[in-house]
Design a protein around this nucleic acid. Sequence first.
DNA 1: TTGAAAGCGCTACCAG
DNA 2: CTGGTAGCGCTTTCAA
Lengths: 336, 336
Amino acid sequence: MAKQRATIQDVARMCGVSTATVSRVINRNGRFSPETERQVRDVIRQLGYVPNQTAQNLRTRSSKLAGILVSRLSYEYVNQIVTQLEDELFRQGYIGIVCNIGDNFENEQTYLDAVFSLNICALFVFASGQPIQLPEGREIPVIYINRAPENLDAGLCCAIETDSVAAGYKACRELLRAGCRRVAIVRRQFGDSRLPRSREVGFMKALQEQGVTCDERLSVSVAENAQYGDVYAAVGEKLDAGLAADGYFCESDIFALSTIRCLERRGLRVPEDVKVVGCNDLSVAQYNYRTITTVRHQTEAICRQAVENMRRLLEDGALEQRHTVFDVELVPRETT
Amino acid sequence: MAKQRATIQDVARMCGVSTATVSRVINRNGRFSPETERQVRDVIRQLGYVPNQTAQNLRTRSSKLAGILVSRLSYEYVNQIVTQLEDELFRQGYIGIVCNIGDNFENEQTYLDAVFSLNICALFVFASGQPIQLPEGREIPVIYINRAPENLDAGLCCAIETDSVAAGYKACRELLRAGCRRVAIVRRQFGDSRLPRSREVGFMKALQEQGVTCDERLSVSVAENAQYGDVYAAVGEKLDAGLAADGYFCESDIFALSTIRCLERRGLRVPEDVKVVGCNDLSVAQYNYRTITTVRHQTEAICRQAVENMRRLLEDGALEQRHTVFDVELVPRETT
DNA sequence: TTGAAAGCGCTACCAG
DNA sequence: CTGGTAGCGCTTTCAA
């Protein structure tokens, strides 16, 4: 009952060596005789000794904890990436701490402060809105996923992205291949729509290549946090206004689903009358009674690369390539 | 650049008081003059000082970190609970650490060891298979969610569950109300099927009350980790064997979806010919072209209670009620 | 109401 | 190859 967890001192005492030696054995650091090592390892096993990470972290001013900052963990796509990232981290001996900011951005700094005071060794930022402000005097790797900040040159940071241009391009190609001529995008409208979004760039490129003209009025814009119902309504409005396309590329499979329902509701058949391509390869894309053609990201590869970059940044303090882009794959199904 | 994060010593020095005093102010512990307090707080703000949790944790042998052990974070229902749990924890000043064990149970102990050595203050266990073995000399609250262990009397533990009996009961009632007379369950088959599962108990109870007999052969069993396709196949087998029901209660909305597709594939219409009730109120239940009648859990209330119990256990070391059960709600939609 | 000081468990420096 | 030891940043007795 009163038996406390074994400490490094217990191990040292039982081995008749100093704590320093035990520490070296544990961390495969410095030199020690094979004999000593064997003995120390024996005692460790015998005692069931596990180093106290808190003490290690305090002493080394670091840890094996990595923060993962996300805004909407409940989105299936986000959840997928986070889960895979945590898995990969664990495989490499790290533990991920998810900071799910949600809608309340004012929380973000509080959360981050708390997490930083845990001595996290790195921070993954997944599609959060704001650029991250690291606390002074504490430079840790920041790995941006699916959102490259303006300036990647300074500090220990890097970005890993999915090729959105390719996503738009391949989706559009598929629609054209299937015979569409009046194609449109169903997309989120972000607050600062300075540049055309990358997906649209790719989309346009495909149109241009095929010599098809684009009627921008056919496209549907919804709010950044739009849900199934919002898209359903927005697509409906366009249709009612006589602005119907014969092919839609939707920024998410959920959007594709709303679009399909909305079309069907009006007597339009998918894919016979209208084709639809979704994005992200969510479960609904397979669960729909007509499986949805979609664009799949290489989420596993992205997560592996992200963790790999973290390690490089931690070890070498530098990276050959600060910006990695992963291609996407079109998954043809029943809606095109 | 070289400027380190401020420490409690910096604050103390700038205030002309000792670190002990600053510590007391931060922790609202012991006594100090209002004047001192004001000054200390000023300096803290000025410096942007945030206490180093690692040091606090080492010193107090505890932390504000709570482990959350789950087996399949990617399941929407699991993800929902975990997200809400993390939110609630954060609201109360704690940080959740998700341990997603996945399929490889051999990882579990490794993961737990790592997490324990972080001095976590409590552990939430969400529907994991094994009973948790706490390390010796380290008694922390363990809160089981949706899985009550055999013995709840010992130690700082408690269980919070959804009323599965009610789930089965309400689902069955709904099927009977809608006119079904040959009803069945589509369920996971666990390795140790010693007792009839609670959902089935409730299901049977409703049948009995209405004087309807049950043909057990109509029910469909799938493996514990069965997916959409497995259920589709299993239901199909039953149908092909002439064992068709006119009402199905499925243990998950995904299962309900497979069942519906399987039925439709064979020319049976839902809900005209066959009724279906799902469970968990997942997104697919709303996204299906015919929304699925389902059973909803009080996930938010469950998470609030879970965190509340943790705090009680931490503060008082005891709980009036070690086992809490939350009722479920039937959500009638278009499949019944 | 306050301060001095002991240590939480560990690592890393410096001597030997 | 090994040991002594300072100190990571904080809390908490004990004494003033």
